[in-house]
Amino acid sequence: MLGPLDPLINFILEPYFFSPFIYPGLTIGLVVLLTLIWAERKMAAKVQLRYGPLYVSKQIGGALQMIADALRFFFQEPIIPRQVDKIVFLATPALALTVTVLPFIFIPAAPSYVGVAVSYSLPLVLALGALIPVVIILMAWGANNKFTLVGGIREAFMTVGYEVALFISAFAAALYYKTLDLSVMVEKQASLGLPGIIINPIAGFVFFVAMLMASSKLPFDIVEGEQEIVAGPFTEYSGILYGLVMGASYLYLYVLMLVFVEMFLSGWLPVIHGLGSIYPALGGVMLFVKTYILLLFAVFLRGVYGRYRLDQALSLGWRRLVPLSLIAALWSFGLLIAGV
């Protein structure tokens, strides 16, 4: 029996629509954004013996605070300073967000459920992510302010600091799976019965740290370095433009975390084997739960850490993470040769 809405529902559930727009894409991305920032503030508050956001919707612990904040962003006047390059200034926040959400097309959400199935999804996602710093540097240049310029330079430095380690550690893991396709990686982990983090813990660790650097979460929020350069590249932004650039960094963390879970924590497979085959959509839920828990941990670090200095973060990247990721690659290679 065909109801009048069925074609529409079918269309929505098609992977090429559902994946980028609903899950894991924009809609859930927005939910993650709103709840994650709230959770970050709540957790930091708890560690600091405070309440955090509370008075907007008191019964549910102020969970609607972020919606209130988003509304405020919408109604706040976006000030465009006189010295900025207007087109760049206005275009870059939107561009940053676009580049951040593009990878959702290639990230599988459940077994064989992906927006555009390509066998190079891992490098594609990482490469799209690597475009974000370019946009941020453009933004910093366009805003034409001393603080944004310093912020832009910091962004450039940080990019070379983490990007190498991020790519090598990802490929080190991929080397063992002998594929660059995220879906196949999850299947490999299923057939091995082990999550990737146990097969190659070093790669997992390096990827996680590089991920924190990439999304400039503490202890690596150097680009925004409030205490020195006010808000780095975002100093001149206000209103919804600021909301966009701030949201982009959280969304990028979400993107990378999905990749991390699929590469190292066996993606949509439940911790206990065999549960996943019962109902395929359960896989998507599992993936989300794992990702979200790790996201919570990543933002919880705000309550524990201060900020590294720029050169220290760079030397961490080059002197520790890059060698470690090379060791991880050797490790994978060794495992392959040993035929484990």
């Binding site: 957790m43 708890k46 560690v47 013996l49 919880f300 670090l301 309550g303 524990v304 850490y305």
Partner: peptide, 9 residues
């Protein structure tokens, strides 16, 4: 440091 943070969490 992380354990201390978690304890207070």
């Amino acid at each position: 440091a992380i354990a201390t943070g978690l304890r207070y969490l």
